[in-house]
Design a protein around this nucleic acid. Structure first.
Length: 251
DNA sequence: CTGGGGATGGGGCCC
DNA sequence: CGGGCCCCATCCCCA
């Protein structure tokens, strides 16, 4: 269950990539991540250079342009639920534009927002309103240049795009990571540092999540239980293995 | 086959 | 808005 509820849609909801295919030491030249992608979307090697520890802003979105334009990429707003609208037209801008070009419109408050029906006496007033309020709420489509994912915020998109650009490179082995703390965790595999200790057996771990998983082994009551035989497991993956191996075969 | 450790990915939250 | 950290999930490997 991906925790990607910020992601609007997954074109390919398949499982994660086979990590064994990612064991490529030549991350600088041919990032393994892109092997299945068209060349045209592969970032330039310089963004993956060892010096490129800092985030590289090679991301793009379908459009971050100011409100002055009404790019087609925002057309997804037209697919939003307009059931509450009395108008047969589905596009907010379509609703607004006739008012903007009304040759007879000289009366005050003639520029109306198609979404919230607020009216403004000037076009700039309406634009400001849309920019600050309505558009900010409806422009929830930030598309990744490298894949099909879309995000509700620019920050979420930038975060995601780092998984493509992999700007954090290990100086020891050259492996690239999307975020500094991922790299830090990886560096521990080189240094042998294990800052997370088990209070029960003093066993140490390099990763907090692995310590957490380990702590389950000390627990009498395991977290994950088979619905059929009530057997419990310390990890969901073990439960899945158990289910796939035949416990639930009769069902 | 099972259980557990190691390693890693990715989105959310907080500052 | 970005960085750091948290948490969850998953895969691989080995005993």
């Amino acid at each position: 269950m991906p925790r990607s509820f910020l992601v609007k849609k997954h074109i390919n909801s398949a499982k994660k990539p086979n990590y064994s295919e990612l064991e490529c030491p030549t991350v600088f030249i041919t990032p393994h991540f892109y092997r299945g992608l068209p060349l045209s979307v592969i970032p330039q090697p310089e963004v993956l250079s060892p010096a490129a520890y800092s985030p590289v802003t090679v991301w793009t979105t379908t459009d971050f342009s100011p409100i002055s334009g009404y790019p087609s990429s925002l057309s997804d707003t037209s697919s939003k639920d307009h059931s509450g609208s009395e108008s047969p037209r589905s596009d907010e801008d379509e609703q607004m534009l006739p008012k903007l070009t009304d040759p007879h419109g000289v009366e005050a408050e003639k520029f109306q927002c198609g979404l919230c029906s607020k009216s403004y006496s000037t076009y700039s007033g309406l634009l400001k309103h849309k920019q600050l309020h309505c558009d900010a709420q409806t422009r929830k489509s930030f598309s990744c240049k490298y894949c099909e994912k879309e995000y509700v915020s620019l920050g979420a998109l930038k975060m995601h795009i780092r998984t493509h650009t992999l700007p954090c490179v290990c100086k020891i082995c050259g492996k690239a990571f999307s975020r500094p703390w991922l790299l830090q965790g990886h560096i521990r595999t080189h240094t042998g540092e294990k800052p997370f200790s088990c209070p029960h057996c003093n066993r140490a771990f390099a990763d907090r999540s692995n310590l957490r998983a380990h702590l389950q082994t000390h627990s009498d009551v395991k977290k994950y239980q088979c619905k059929n035989c009530s057997k419990t497991f310390s990890r969901m993956s073990l439960l899945h293995k158990h289910e796939e191996s035949g416990c639930c075969v009769a069902h």
